[in-house]
Simulated assay, not measured.
Amino acid sequence: MARVESFADAVDLLWSVAMEDVDAAEASALAALAAQAMARAQDGPARDMAGVDDDQWVEWLLRTSSAGDSSVLPAVERFGSARQPKERRAAWRLHEAASRIAFAAARVTSTAALALWRESWHAQSSVFLGDVLTYLRQREQSGPDGPIAGKIGAALAEGARSRTADDPALVVVAHSMGGNIVYDLLSHLRPELECDVLVTVGSQVGVFAELGLLPAVSAPADPKSDRVPALANVGSWINVYDPNDPLAFVTAKIFAGSEDFAYSTGRGVRSSHSAYMRRPSFHHRLSERLRDCPLPSTATGLPQE
Results as ranks from 00 to 15, higher is better:
residue 8 A to H: 01
residue 236 S to M: 08
residue 27 A to I: 02
residue 60 W to I: 07
residue 149 A to H: 02
residue 125 S to F: 13
residue 76 V to R: 06
residue 31 A to H: 11
residue 258 S to A: 15
residue 184 D to P: 10
residue 221 A to R: 14
residue 143 G to N: 02
residue 13 L to Y: 07
residue 42 Q to C: 12
residue 22 V to Y: 09
residue 117 W to K: 14
residue 168 P to Y: 04
residue 245 D to E: 07
residue 10 A to D: 15
residue 1 M to F: 14
residue 47 R to F: 11
residue 86 K to W: 09
residue 276 Y to D: 03
residue 16 S to Y: 06
residue 51 G to A: 03
residue 92 W to K: 10
residue 32 A to M: 07
residue 227 R to C: 13
residue 191 P to R: 00
residue 243 P to H: 08
residue 221 A to K: 15
residue 36 Q to P: 03
residue 25 A to N: 08
residue 186 L to M: 09
residue 74 P to Q: 10
residue 234 V to M: 00
residue 195 C to E: 00
residue 292 D to A: 15
residue 272 S to K: 10
residue 99 S to L: 07
residue 183 Y to S: 07
residue 285 R to S: 11
residue 214 L to Y: 12
residue 255 F to P: 03
residue 105 A to Q: 15
residue 305 E to V: 11
residue 260 D to K: 03
residue 162 S to K: 02
residue 85 P to I: 05
residue 160 A to H: 10
residue 15 W to C: 14
residue 144 P to C: 11
residue 202 G to P: 02
residue 160 A to F: 04
residue 211 L to F: 13
residue 177 M to D: 03
residue 214 L to K: 12
residue 128 F to T: 11
residue 181 I to K: 00
residue 243 P to K: 06
residue 276 Y to A: 05
residue 111 T to Q: 11
residue 43 D to N: 13
residue 297 S to G: 13
residue 180 N to R: 04
residue 285 R to W: 11
residue 204 Q to P: 05
residue 62 L to A: 07
residue 101 I to F: 10
residue 300 T to W: 13
residue 106 A to N: 13
residue 188 H to Q: 13
residue 146 G to E: 07
residue 303 P to C: 08
residue 208 F to E: 08
residue 178 G to A: 01
residue 57 W to K: 03
residue 231 L to I: 03
residue 118 R to P: 07
residue 207 V to K: 02
residue 192 E to F: 06
residue 1 M to D: 15
residue 275 A to F: 09
residue 155 A to L: 02
residue 139 R to F: 06
residue 99 S to M: 11
residue 271 S to L: 15
residue 215 P to N: 07
residue 93 R to N: 11
residue 237 W to E: 01
residue 240 V to R: 02
residue 167 D to R: 12
residue 39 A to Y: 04
residue 264 S to K: 09
residue 250 V to I: 09
residue 193 L to R: 05
residue 134 T to D: 10
residue 195 C to F: 00
residue 243 P to F: 11
residue 89 R to P: 06
residue 293 C to F: 04
residue 76 V to L: 12
residue 125 S to T: 15
residue 43 D to W: 07
residue 101 I to R: 14
residue 143 G to T: 06
residue 136 L to Y: 08
residue 131 D to V: 06
